[in-house]
């Protein structure tokens, strides 16, 4: 069974003036149907305003679809009685690490989720320890979040979600406010969770190099899903991506341009090693 499934999902932001009259409607997500299998690493790509964050929020039942349905692990997000179960199943990590850390000590913040779920104290301690170890932040458990770097803060946020033992994690541009080192830390931690713990990951981003290792990629533009496929398939369509105002990883672009100039390189080269190998074959 799919862990996350949406059918004809539509979400509209309705702007109202002071007298509650409808001023305008912005359709953020338009007729999206997708399904995610347990254990998959999904990347959702799109530039600003493409509706990817809205899509993420509907999965966590923070926003309710205007039309269509979202199922999380078989539960309909429109059903109020499922609300807390859905939030425990599909954890969510947001963009700004400062605005989602609640505790004043790292371990207290990680414990916040399980506290809300009503988990007994000893069990919380166990979970906190486990989750912090999973993201490699166990040594900082007594630290104040204010003293951590952006990447570390974001890993603490991920641990906070992990402590709720979700089956699926939705990360809404977790690296947008981080420096390159922080980005790598976070992405590595997420991949490790996906591989070692088998947690389904839905990563929303606009950095191309973060999706190279994803199982499947969805490209969104103005609320629609424009492309779907493996990273290799997506990246072989360089021109289409550029039309959607997205860039491809440097290596892929170099390979693409070389191919255009007549070198017999394969489509969708993703890593430097691949390119070197293919170039060697060309000679």
């Amino acid at each position: 069974m799919e862990i996350v499934k949406t059918e004809k999902l539509t979400f509209e932001y309705i702007r109202r003036d002071e007298n509650d009259n409808v001023e305008g409607i912005t359709t953020a997500v338009d007729n999206v149907s997708l399904s995610v299998k347990p254990g998959e690493f999904i990347a959702i790509l799109g530039h600003n305003g493409s509706g990817k964050s809205t899509l993420a929020k509907t999965i966590n039942a923070i926003l309710h679809p205007t039309e269509g349905t979202v199922w999380v692990d078989g539960m309909d997000t429109m059903d109020e009685s499922n609300l807390w179960n859905i939030r425990n199943t599909a954890g969510m990590v947001f963009q700004n690490p400062d605005n989602q850390i609640i505790g004043q000590v790292v371990e207290e913040d990680v414990g916040f989720g399980p506290e809300n779920m009503g988990v007994p104290s000893e069990e919380i301690w166990k979970r906190v320890e486990e989750s912090l170890k999973m993201v490699g932040m166990y040594d900082y458990r007594k630290a104040s979040p204010n003293r951590l770097s952006g990447g570390q803060k974001q890993r603490v946020s991920i641990a906070g979600v992990l402590a709720m033992r979700p089956k699926c994690i939705v990360l809404d541009e977790p690296t947008a406010m981080l420096d390159p080192i922080g980005r790598r830390e976070v992405i590595n931690a997420v991949h490790e969770l996906n591989i070692k713990e088998g947690i389904t990951v839905i990563l929303i981003t606009h950095y191309m190099d973060e999706i190279v290792n994803a199982d499947r990629v969805f490209v969104m533009d103005s609320g629609h899903i424009e492309m779907e496929g493996t990273p290799r398939e997506i990246f072989s369509r360089v021109d289409e991506l550029k039309e959607l105002r997205l860039s491809v990883p440097q290596v892929t672009e170099v390979a693409y341009e070389l191919r255009k100039k007549g070198l017999s390189l394969p489509f969708g080269i993703l890593t430097i090693d691949e390119l070197v190998e293919s170039l060697n074959k060309c000679r």
Partner: peptide, 13 residues
């Protein structure tokens, strides 16, 4: 606003 959303996402009620 962000914090409230994050708290809700982590099941605060």
């Amino acid at each position: 606003n962000d914090l409230a959303m994050a708290m809700e996402a982590r099941g605060y009620r």
